[in-house]
Nucleic acid binder design. Structure first.
Lengths: 337, 337
DNA sequence: AAAGGGGTTTGTATCGATAAAAATCGGTCG
DNA sequence: CGACCGATTTTTATCGATACAAACCCCTTT
């Protein structure tokens, strides 16, 4: 394997000079640089990333911890992050947490192994009680939710506002009895589901529609399977309804299936809207209305935050930065076009 | 930052002994091991991966190069690979090639930088002409297609056989004029599209149905968008048809949208089948019939091949291993249930 | 008591690159 | 002509872990 020493020998200079050329340091004579570059080409030299890392302490890789990459939302998010990171010459290693607290803690530990220069964590399992765990000594950005007023940078969706707009959209289209399919009984936790539940309530209140607890359907896990089961359940419950706000698009896709199974027509009998605007939503039949929180913006902002932290390595305990993305309502067939 | 030396000092042993404990080497007295472990816990010591890598030459990370992780098929594949790799204590860094030859070449170069111990490459852009490029000096497995009789391990789908079964399934359900939506004019290349085209032709031949070139619809990129456009195009062309075999499920999902737009009913007017059995297929309306090539098996086999190569680091130029996955036909609503 | 031997532990060199500091070079200036 | 200067290049030490081989320990054997 050819090393920097070999290149130095071939070019008739010292290893340091080669290093300077590689890293674009100033004060290298043009003629010398050319000779070194030639030697690099001739020998097909590649820097040994491990050696560089050991010396500099940087790995050039950031970690991205998501529940599962095969869920459309996270897959699309990962793609955006990888693209954004590439612009900063950073590689992305993906960690799957399985949407569990445990998996997320593992991810936190990994960066401590200095495998990654920093971590982007899309958390769903950690609660406010875990704030302490997030006081890590390496750059980190929490992505997707606004869980903590904690000490960590985070990039979040406009959960409350988006959910309010989604519900308002259904009401605008004539719905008066809107089912909410969300991720669990509203507790004291500030997770996606309860934030979006807040938005749902606000929209009903604004329209002067009383909240009917029978319209709240809770599911265990934000999957298509659970969404389908929830839709079937509410359809067979005898409760009247004419709209459904699903806490994520994935759940909404499942719900569309569930309603179809139950013989409930969308959008004639029930109008459905989701949240996330995943790519598939535009193609399925009926196409799915949704709230688009501008993932690309979120991804690039998260990476930008992280890169910023990487740069200020020395200083510590800065105030946490926060970015709440914007959103747009995307009206498609599932709410009548 | 606490190093192995600090641990050694705290435990009253040498650094080497700590190293032995960390790496589960034999010949460490139980009492010593306990003392070292205690010190590790007390100091919250973490190995410095970079230093280990430099010394051992292993990074503990494998690269996975796919066109784009946000396409359902690749996302699901990535998830399986990550899971399979985790069983061998390997991390997975994802590289997006954008389905281009260039991107794939970049991915090949990366492992040469020793960022990864090995590479799993899901190639779509490289052709038989590039066989030479695949003669790399690090472990690599080509995943997804059976492009080469080349010198590289590969794990492939039963493309021809699966496509034949898919087409046969449509014929069985009464179709006589089956549209093929695939990825390009059949050339001399051995890519997915042309292999699946072969299967399509074989099935027609077996059933004694002449091949009608007007039923061949070529698209530029295996995306939902292209699938939708293709379905609209063929619907408006005036050509009669009663079945459609789409080269991938993603294309099929697009096609379902395209047929809906054109007022063509699935499965009444046209029966549709895809290939890949992505998770969404079971939930969309109508649910999508497909060929399931057992991705989990493919993923774990690819990782197993790679791990095998990692182990035999010394020996080189072994014969290439090949694994063709099995498949099953999954009949759903889009072909009449 | 000396030799032998397996289990345990340790010293030393090294992986390849780079930070920091020192040396060298070619001129310029007083 | 010698001091001095900035640009350029080199020397030296080091990042933290592990391969390798030697050393050590304690017990058994002869």
């Amino acid at each position: 394997m050819v090393t920097i020493q070999d290149v130095a020998r071939a070019a008739g200079v010292s290893a340091m000079t080669v290093s300077h050329v590689i890293n674009d340091h100033p004060h290298v004579k043009t003629e010398t640089r050319a000779r070194v570059l030639q030697a690099i080409t001739d020998l097909d030299y590649r820097v040994n990333v491990a050696a560089r890392n050991l010396r500099t302490g940087r790995t050039g890789t950031i970690g991205l911890a998501v529940p599962e990459v095969d869920r459309p939302y996270y897959g699309q998010l990962a793609a955006e992050i990888i693209t954004a990171a590439a612009r900063h010459n950073l590689k992305v290693a993906i960690e799957q947490t399985g949407a569990s607290r445990e998996g997320e803690l593992d991810a936190l530990a990994l960066s401590r192994n200095r495998l990654y220069d920093g971590l982007i964590l899309s958390t769903v399992g950690l609660g406010p009680a875990d704030t302490d765990l997030l006081k890590v000594d390496y750059p980190m950005v929490i992505l997707g939710e606004r869980i903590f007023d904690g000490p960590v940078d985070h990039v979040a969706m406009p959960n409350v506002e988006g959910a309010r707009a989604a519900t308002a959209h259904l009401i605008e289209r004539g719905c008066r009895r809107v089912v909410l399919i969300d991720g669990g009984p509203p507790g004291d936790e500030v997770d996606v589901s309860s934030l979006r539940y807040d938005g749902y309530r606000e929209a009903l209140a604004e329209a002067g529609i009383p909240l009917d607890p029978r319209l709240l359907v809770h599911i265990d896990g934000l999957t298509m399977e659970q969404g389908a089961a929830a839709a079937r359940r509410v359809s067979e419950s005898g409760v009247e309804f004419d709209g459904a706000f699903c806490v994520t698009d994935t759940v909404a896709m499942g719900a569309l299936r569930g309603f179809a199974d139950a013989g409930v027509r969308v959008p004639q009998d029930v109008k459905v809207i989701g949240f996330d605007n995943i790519a598939e939503g535009a193609y399925i039949v009926p196409s799915l209305s949704s709230i688009d929180p501008d993932h690309a913006l979120m991804a690039s902002t998260a990476v930008r935050f992280l890169v910023g932290r990487l740069a200020e390595k020395g200083k510590k305990r800065q105030v946490a930065r926060e970015f709440i993305s914007r959103f747009t309502v995307v009206a498609r067939e599932s709410t009548g076009g």
